[in-house]
């Protein structure tokens, strides 16, 4: 399986990365982590990329890291489709104090527009 994980730096996207690295450690799937420009995430791209590299190293698995510029949803869908990925993985949304799940706009765009299967990590 060839997987691309989109990450903008929000807490749910970091959880999705950790979950996916656990899976990759078990399955040996091919993983690319795409750092996207998430308008809802405060940390800037360089900072996110650094953090991602650190986490990957911690897990000791092989994964490529790329930077995607422009609109995050469409950049991710285009990247996945033009590079033959089987699956796009994203964070499954933030949870409010009330416990309500709120799915972000990147996830919504990808769900509605991607011809590649999409996985949201909870």
């Amino acid at each position: 399986m060839k997987t691309v994980l989109g990450i903008g730096g929000t807490d749910d996207s970091i959880r999705a990365l950790e979950h996916t690295l656990d899976r990759v450690a078990e399955t040996g799937d091919e993983l690319t982590v795409a750092v996207i420009e998430n308008p809802d995430s405060t940390p800037a791209g360089d900072e996110v990329e650094e953090r991602v590299e650190g986490i990957i190293e911690e897990y000791g698995v092989d994964a490529d890291v790329v930077r995607l510029s422009g609109d995050p949803g469409s950049a991710l869908v285009e990247f996945a489709e033009s590079n033959g990925y089987d699956e796009i993985v994203l964070g499954g949304g933030e949870t409010s104090a009330m416990g309500k799940i709120q799915v972000g706009r990147v996830a919504e765009f990808v769900l509605l527009n991607s011809h590649t299967s999409v996985k949201l990590v909870r």
Partner: peptide
Amino acid sequence: RAQGIPPVRGDALERWLDGI
């Protein structure tokens, strides 16, 4: 249910209820 609440029965429901 809306946006995942109330959680389905069990521990998750009790934890959620205690919080709110």
